[in-house]
Amino acid sequence: MGAIAAHVGRKRRLFLPFLVPAMALYVAFLVLPTLATVVLSFTKWAGAGDTPKPNGVGNYQQLLNSEAFQFSFVNTLIYVFAGGVGTFVLAFLFTMVLRDMRGGKVVRAILFFPNIVAPVALGMFLGFVFKYQPHKQGLANFILTELGGTAQKFLAPDNVTWVVTASLIWASSGFFITILMAAVDNIPPYLYEDSDLAGASPWQKFTNITLPLTWDVIGVAGVLWTINALKIFELVFVLAGPGTYSPPNRAWTLGIFVFDRTFGSNGTPDFGAACACAVAMIVLVSVLVVALRRLMRRDALQY
């Protein structure tokens, strides 16, 4: 056993050399910039050529009174909550069906595909699908008018949030189906056999077996969803706007707000306000993730 003890000692000496490169990059490119953003959010700063001046909570007051920020905030919450509920309902429905379906793995692979398409490309592609222009209607309006309906302005600022929500549900469900299916496959099959013998309906099987036994995975998937939905940017930017310029305020998300105030081509940059919005994003993601974990933990104890 001496060899192992010596080995463990030698291994410990490698701990730092193995860890330091990753930690150094992590601290330099994630921790420090996040702190810098927090500090800069309390300054007035137009960006390059200007110097940051202390501004107290001025940027935050400005945000609260800004219509663009209010739209961004509400839209982001719509994507997180409406998109999240829709995605998980669809993913669960699909998981239950695919489990007993011949060719379920192939169908799953087809449903997963939108997840590996660049959001920019997906946005442009959906832009064609939902295009509204007399005599040059996109796929959705083409089908709608063929069926005798009237063409809709899907991408008008008032509608686009819901079109993006639906697109998001469609595009993301494959990812969550994959994760949920793996969790469902780990459930011992005899539980389902027993409940079949007892004459349980699919809904009863879902609420009494599937849901409680996949609870932890749903929690992790929910966190992943929240993180990703909160920073949604490219899809909305391309789908709601002309492409290179920011879309109308009505359609903004928090991610677009930060981009527009710093690198966007509309008006003068305002790095201070952008940093305050970025801080709002990270506070929101923290609050939502912590709340979600609380919620999931309490319910898990009931089983």
């Binding site: 810098a36 993180i227 909160l230 919005c277 801080v279 994003m281």
Partner: peptide
């Protein structure tokens, strides 16, 4: 989110 670190 990338947006939080991108400015600095």
């Amino acid at each position: 989110p990338f947006q939080t670190v991108v400015i600095p």
